[in-house]
Computed example of a mutant assay.
Amino acid sequence: MKNGTDDLILDYCNNITNLGGGLDPEVLAYWYKRVEDKAKEVCSKELGEKIVFTQNRILWMKFEIKLSKRAVPLVLETIRDFMPLMPYATALYFEKVYQLILDEFNRDYV
């Protein structure tokens, strides 16, 4: 017989288990591809060619980001648009990616 405490503990355990799934390399690659495709869709073809995300084939959690400075605002906006749709852990990961891109962009202008 289950009681309210058992349900609460089970729910808590399921939430913790699901957190790790958001950091799976396949999940990250999926969202990187979505961001890349959407950013390319909203800009010119010439600028779209300068938006490239590449997953490292040895270190699956490592991605290389190559962006034209003109493409940075589009990519940042796209990341922001997709974050509410991402699993929690993935959204936290992309929050950090967003901040790193923004810091690098701002570093060049200061």
Rank of each mutant, 00 (worst) to 15 (best):
L100G: 00
K33E: 15
P73T: 01
I65F: 00
E26N: 15
I58F: 12
C13E: 14
P25T: 08
K38I: 05
R57H: 13
F82Q: 07
F63G: 07
S44N: 10
L28Y: 07
L23W: 01
Y88S: 13
G21V: 00
M86S: 08
D37C: 02
L19V: 05
L59N: 08
M61K: 09
F94Y: 04
I79Q: 09
P87N: 07
Y32R: 02
Y12G: 01
K38L: 13
L23P: 00
K33N: 14
Y12F: 12
V27W: 05
E64T: 12
D7A: 04
L28C: 09
K66Q: 14
M86Q: 11
N106V: 11
Q55L: 03
E49H: 08
V27T: 15
R70T: 00
F82G: 04
V72Y: 09
K66C: 10
L67C: 08
A91N: 09
L85I: 00
L59Q: 14
E64I: 00
W60F: 07
C13Q: 13
G20N: 08
I51A: 07
L8F: 11
I65Q: 03
L28G: 05
D7V: 04
A29V: 06
P87K: 12
D103T: 03
M1V: 07
Y109S: 10
P84S: 06
G48L: 09
L67Q: 06
